[in-house]
């Protein structure tokens, strides 16, 4: 079980690196928000494998649910494309 679990954690960490890069480089801020949510999902999987269920329970609603909602609200009230 240990090798499979750590392999999954590594895959999640590498996915988060790709998502972070795409989020920082995207010109469309909505796309950046979605990639930031992908990065949060990868982190949530990583926390689960690192045996932190409390953090998963607080991190999923906050960083996958509320934070993208707030960011999309911000984009709607300001501007969508980075200039």
């Amino acid at each position: 079980m240990e090798p499979v679990a750590i392999l999954l954690a590594t895959a999640a960490a590498l996915l988060s690196v790709i998502a972070t890069y795409l989020a920082i480089e995207a010109k469309d801020l909505l796309v950046a928000t979605v990639f930031s949510a992908v990065q949060s999902t990868a982190y949530a999987l990583m926390y689960y494998i690192l045996m932190a269920p409390d953090i998963v329970l607080v991190y999923v609603p906050v960083s996958v649910g509320l934070l993208p909602a707030v960011t999309i609200l911000l984009i709607k009230k300001t501007e969508r494309y980075e200039r």
């Binding site: 920082i24 801020l29 930031s36 990065q39 960011t71 911000l74 984009i75 980075e82």
Partner: peptide, 16 residues
């Protein structure tokens, strides 16, 4: 990045 929204997204990733 010059955009404050992009800075905001980067800040959330940093603290996470």
């Amino acid at each position: 990045k010059p955009s404050l929204v992009k800075k905001f997204i980067a800040l959330t990733i940093f603290s996470d």
